[in-house]
Design a protein around this nucleic acid. Structure first.
Lengths: 187, 187, 187, 187
DNA sequence: ACGTAAACGAGACGGTACGTCCGGTCTTTCA
DNA sequence: TGAAAGACCGGACGTACCGTCTCGTTTACGT
């Protein structure tokens, strides 16, 4: 029982133009100024093409995030064999992003989007924890890691602190990354 | 150098009507549908009265938060003398709020507002950490508490986890509050 | 020099489906809501099939009119030998059509189409004057008819009055058909 | 029992700007290209201002017609004392308008509007018959005029012929004005 | 008490964006 | 290669709010 259909297929070019435009405008103007019309204009696409394929602004951003068009390498955890050091490095790298106006604005915009879109919220949590590798490293860390059963709590705590700092706009103190990791992974 | 002026002073009644309307509409319709016109309508107030006294939606919500019109008692930490127990209780209480549709929606709406309004973000952090008493209790806890110098990290981690869970819509597992506190306050 | 060509020829079925759909929709929804997409949908035809064969909505309606799918027998003049009586009968019959909501709406829709489409305008005039037989009867009427050289004026006047009444929505007074003919064909 | 209301009154400036823009655009682009957005743009007015005060495009045009912004002096009947001559002159003047591309296009646009808007249709009939003075002159003409009781028929016939000619795009033959009047006002 | 002036409710204004609909073109598959 | 299907870009629809700007009314001083 094939699905035989006639007519043109979805345009991959239009799809990517929309995602790219959304990512760029999000960084440039923030979430509340991210309008469908501006995305369409910037992407050179009709509005209907957006409404045909995405149910909401949040869904566009979720897809852009998954395509790696928003924050990609910034979120990968390195692996030197030393868990504490890797996580501290990672947190410091994220803090560095949040220290720039661009980076902080983009992160906050993403938060605003997530706060109004449950699926994007969950995706953001996953990307901030698991996909970057934090969760995996924690789970695999054995002796050196957190007590059994609390790996998820720790991963959430790290992601949570980062979100909170982005929200409150607080410049993290020097050494705060190390202090955070020390609190969470004592020993 | 007095300021001598004539005419009526600011109407406290109008002020409270606006704050109350904003708090109610936020809970009912979420942040992105929280319009100035709806607030004015609901409050029985002219739009100009709002624009005269508040610079943004975020400022209205910040004031409503400070007036205790949004989440008040939910956020106070008890004091039985046992720090771990008090914090676990508090986290569980907050989780209970997030488990209701109303509560989660309101919390997310507040997050959306905070993500688009730096001052409100900082205020939210303070209310979630310090004013509720978490930070104070941590700082005062001495031996039983976290290592010196990391009280702020721990307070941020607790608040952060809560925010993350609200964002991702994850129902926290039973016992997750205890696990979280255990991770952060080992011993 | 035959035209040898391969592939399917124009589908008569599609053509008639389009004309029928256009006629029905015109009566049902009026001219300004008569969209190409609705015609295609109603006819079970692709949009391109319409654009391939007709240059405009007006052209579709013109063809439908010529096929007799819009007002046919309503417009034929009878022949009892008495010109004045035949014309009066005819005008009264047209008035009766205009007295119904359906009939008036359809006539007005046709007028709207004609006003935006010169060819359809001319066609409407011809159908309302000549094809129905008015013009022919007038020209052939000899003594009893209008003064030589003004037959066209009289035919135009009769058609014009009918159009004007459709436009203004005026219910014609009883006896107005007779009065009109009396004015135009004195004696 | 005054009507006491507070707040700003309707802006006469905006009202006239809208009517003027509508009249100009009607002449320039025809009725089906006369969009609310274009009127608003041309008038320097918000769309909502138009939707607040007028229920339809037709209503705007009706008001513009009443304000004399579309065809004013073209439609006045002169008075030399000789009814036949005055009417012939008038019909010839209208024919002259219809002979220009501009004039014919504007007239047709008006017809299109009237065909989709009953009130405008009636207004057009009144303006074309009575307000221009045709009906009044006919009624007052006594002996020289049409038989008693058919003045309205004659006025409608004159207006109808003019409409029909505009619709069909027929260039009226030289002398056709005289022929028309002769048919209608014999003697 | 009386003027003056500010704050109030109401709401019109020029705008921007919404989400939907349609115009006309182009692309794909089938018959 | 005509036809059905339908995606595409463009752009108008009518609505909702934005933030600013009158209006007329209602206080609450200062004289």
């Amino acid at each position: 029982m094939d699905e035989h259909r006639t007519g043109p297929r979805r345009s991959e070019q239009a799809r990517l133009a929309v995602l790219g435009a959304a990512a760029e405008l999000l960084a440039r103007t923030g979430y509340e100024n991210l309008t469908i019309e501006a995305i369409a204009r910037q992407a050179g696409v009709g509005k209907q093409t957006i409404y045909r394929w995405w149910p909401s602004r949040g869904a566009i951003l979720a897809e852009a995030l998954l395509e790696g068009l928003i924050f990609r390498q910034e979120l990968a955890v390195g692996d030197t064999g030393d868990l504490r050091r890797d996580l501290t490095d990672w947190v410091e790298r994220v803090h560095a992003v949040l220290a720039t106006d661009q980076g902080r604005a983009l992160f906050r915009a993403l938060l605003a989007a997530a706060a109004e879109n449950p699926e994007l919220g969950e995706l953001l949590r996953v990307q901030l924890g698991a996909d970057g590798g934090v969760r995996a490293r924690l789970a695999a860390s054995g002796e050196a890691g957190p007590a059994a059963g609390v790996a998820d709590e720790v991963a959430d705590a790290i992601a949570g602190v980062i979100i909170l700092r982005a929200l409150s706009g607080q410049a993290p103190a020097a050494g705060s990354a190390a202090a955070l990791i020390a609190s969470l992974l004592p020993g």
